[in-house]
């Protein structure tokens, strides 16, 4: 093995240890609820807990709502920027990156000031309104991931020519967007959607300060009062995230295979 290759393997090994050792340790710890033996008792308790199911279902529902809202917001925006306003691209990219540099705590305090029950738009006055506000907050947090996924997808297809071809065939904007552009962005939107799902499932700050029964606050609550169950929950959360990543890879690979499949030309 030559020297640069060996160095690469050493770096790869060290990085793997850095990520895997805490994970393996957490997993191992989560199996030690029963003294003197390994068991999945902690997982059983977690899955049997009604609050786990409720909070996970709540977060999953909000994740779906976030994905739908974000798709409706991001796809037309990214499409329009690519097609008609390419000069605005740096500005739009800057705006979409802001959630990565502005802490969620700043965002939620802004929400609480702006949408308190005494304000002209009291979005924190009822649980339903607060859920809507929380969904909007999730949209903000997931914006960088969804925008980048969709923008990358749009760059991979010839948006301008496809749009012009559809226009010349008599199509209006809605037809072009929903029948030509959107179906060609499926894998890009799914990538963004899975990332959004992972972000929403693990989010704590906004949900906690808005006092909503989401999965993030539940994780924190369990972590503060139990020993083994939080480790089991951490592993479950990891698995959910990894499943999302795996799905992105699968869809991407399937699309690549379909596009590069050998074809018999008569």
């Amino acid at each position: 093995m030559n020297r640069p290759r060996l160095q690469s393997w050493i770096v790869m090994g060290l990085a793997s240890l850095y990520f895997l050792v805490p994970l393996i340790a957490t997993f191992e710890f989560s199996l030690r609820l029963k003294r003197g033996e390994y068991s999945f008792e902690a997982y059983r308790i977690v899955f049997a807990d009604a609050r786990f199911q409720e909070s996970f279902l709540f977060s999953a529902s909000l994740a779906v709502a976030t994905i739908v809202l974000l798709t409706l917001l991001v796809v037309p925006t990214a499409y329009w920027v690519q097609l008609r306003l390419p000069k605005l691209r740096p500005l739009v990219e800057f705006i979409t990156l802001l959630p990565l540099v502005i802490p969620a705590i700043v965002l939620v305090f802004g929400y609480l000031n702006l949408y308190s029950s005494a304000s002209w738009l009291p979005l924190t006055a009822t649980p339903m309104a607060t859920n809507i506000l929380l969904t909007c907050g999730y949209c903000t947090l997931a914006l960088p991931y969804m925008y980048r996924s969709v923008d990358t997808g749009l760059r991979a297809i010839d948006v301008r020519t496809l749009t012009e071809a559809a226009e010349s065939l008599g199509a209006g904007w809605a037809t072009i967007l929903f029948r030509v552009i959107l179906p060609n962005l499926t894998s890009a939107i799914l990538s963004g959607a899975f990332l959004t799902f992972a972000v929403v499932i693990g989010e704590f700050t906004i949900a906690s300060l808005l006092n909503r029964p989401a999965f993030g606050p539940y994780l924190q609550l369990v972590g503060a009062n139990r020993a083994y169950e939080p480790a089991a929950l951490a592993i479950i959360a990891f698995l959910v995230t990894w499943a999302c990543m795996g799905l992105i890879q699968l869809i991407g690979a399937a699309r690549t295979r379909a596009m590069t499949a050998p074809v018999e030309i008569p």
């Binding site: 297809i157 010839d158 020519t161 012009e164 071809a165 559809a166 065939l169 008599g170 060609n184």
Partner: peptide, 20 residues
């Protein structure tokens, strides 16, 4: 008139077939 209202067919260099 916008392109959609001109009843003009167009063929592009890059084919522009809808991939989906």
């Amino acid at each position: 008139l916008p392109p959609a209202k001109r009843n003009v067919g167009m063929v592009f260099q890059a084919y522009a077939l809808f991939p989906n």
